[in-house]
Structure formats: structure tokens, C-alpha cells
Amino acid sequence: MVKTAFCLCLLILPSYLFAQARQDTISAYFDLGISAIKKSEQLKIDSLVYYDILQFGTKLRIIGYADYVGSEEANVELSEARANNIKSYLISLGMSDQDIEMVIGKGEVKRDVPNGNAGYRKDRRVDIVPGGFQHSPDTPKKTPAKTIDLSKVKKNETLRLENVYFEGGSHYWLKQSIPVLEQLLAALQQHPTVRIRIEGHICCDRPRDGIDFETGEFELSTQRAKAVRDYLVKNGIAITRLEYHGFARTRPLRDPAEDQMMNRRVEIRILDK
């Protein structure tokens, strides 16, 4: 199908294709409140497949989003519908269902400064992330999580949350992180007087914090720490017991060139017991 659509594919500018070839994530954009794929985005995907920039036979993750316009529940459904429509379109082009490792809707992208009823076009999108979980550098081998015992951690000491890992360039954690977060929640429930600060860190030699592609800001370590804080608050921990802070790459455990994964981490610091 794609090969016979060569003339249509040429409608996509080569400069755009070259830009996509240099990126890890391919994004398809949608109209406000609409889950159907626009013709222009179908042609974009056709072109990326034709020129082997989006290659079948590799693992993919498909992640849908919505802007803030509309209710939170409706936006979750909308983002899921967008992601599923992209999946269906890729399969119609010849992609194997087994190569699509994840299809998920993240709901709305939070914005501190709304843009009225117009919303934000770049938040109405689906990201196609090549590589899947098996080949992602941000996905280490899963190892059993240790029980978190806050009674053994002294005031002002830190405790690293082992096996808490995030999607590349994002404050969304990978699913193997959930058991550790549940253990942290249980530990705070068992010790109701403990106050903590959640500290986010990233790897690599950067002059400032990493960019969070969800917000477009250089605040990746801060947003990852905040995401853990928000999870705890959502599950009943008083917000007054929780602080968060991002330290970017200023406190590496190891030489970033030798062990990037070790430095992509979240720690908790005991502020009061």
C-alpha cells in the first residue's frame, strides 16, 4: 500500500523527513477533540515508512495525549482513542501487532498557563517511539525490589529508590517501577510522622537540567521527583509530609560516562521522623 502511494508521499517535505530521522520519537498531531487521524498525518506516516525512517520489524510504543480542553476523564479516553487509531493505521500498512509493545493514553498534558479554548496543538498528539521496552537504554533488567524500612534511615540521610526508572525524556515511570513506589507508599503509611524530600537526578554531561518533552522545559529531574510526590499524594499521603527537588546532574553517584543508568535515579531524604 505504501509503495504504491509514492506520489502522495512526496507531498511531505524532505527536510521534515530528515528531521524525523534524527529524532527518537515520531509524533502525529490531531484536531481539537478529534481522535480520527488527519489525512496530512497519514501521509506523513506513509512517507516515513516509505523512506524506512519508521521501520517495520522493530518494536514500538504508541503513546497518546490530549490538551487540557475538556474534562480529565474525557481527555484520557480521547488520548487512548488516538493511540489506538495510530496502531490500527500502522497495522493497515503492514506492521505486525506483536511488534507494538505498548498502546496507552496519558490523558491531558498539564499546563500552568492555559491558552483559552484553543488549547495547544502540540499536546494533541500521539508519539510513536521506536525501540520498545526490550531495546530501550532506559529499561534495565528487572531485579527484585527490596523492602523499604524507614526506621533504619536517619534524619537527613538519603535512600535511593532502586528500580524506579522513567521513559526517556519524560517524567512518566516505566511499569516495573510500580512495586517500588507501592513499597514507599506502604512505608510512609507505617511511619506517619516521617517527612521526606523526594530528590530527582539525571545522567550525562549537560549544562542544565534535561528537557522534559511533556512540558517542553528543562526541568526533567524536578518533574520526575514531582511525579513521585503526586503519586504519594494521590494515594493518601499528606502533601505537608512531602517536598521535592531536582538536582539535574550535579550529584552523580558515578562517572556519567561509565554508568548513566545509575545516575538516572530518584532518592528520598528524611527531613523529620
Rank of each mutant, 00 (worst) to 15 (best):
I26M: 13
I37H: 06
T58P: 01
V69P: 02
V69D: 04
S47D: 09
Y16N: 07
V69Y: 01
Y65R: 05
K39R: 11
I62E: 13
I53R: 01
F18H: 02
F18Y: 10
Q23N: 07
S27Y: 02
S27N: 12
F30I: 12
S35G: 07
D67P: 05
R61A: 10
Y29N: 01
S35Q: 08
R22Q: 15
A66Y: 04
L48Q: 07
A28S: 12
Q55D: 10
Q55G: 00
L60G: 01
T58N: 10
G64E: 12
G57L: 06
L54Q: 04
S71A: 10
K59S: 14
L48D: 06
D67T: 04
Y68N: 02
D24A: 14
A66R: 02
R22Y: 11
Q20D: 14
I26W: 09
I53Q: 02
Y29A: 00
I45G: 00
F30S: 07
D24P: 07
A28K: 00
A21H: 11
I37L: 15
Y50K: 09
Y29I: 04
R61N: 12
L17V: 06
D31A: 13
D46E: 09
Q55V: 11
S35C: 01
F18Q: 10
G57T: 03
I63R: 12
A21F: 03
D31K: 10
I53Y: 01
Y65N: 12
G64A: 13
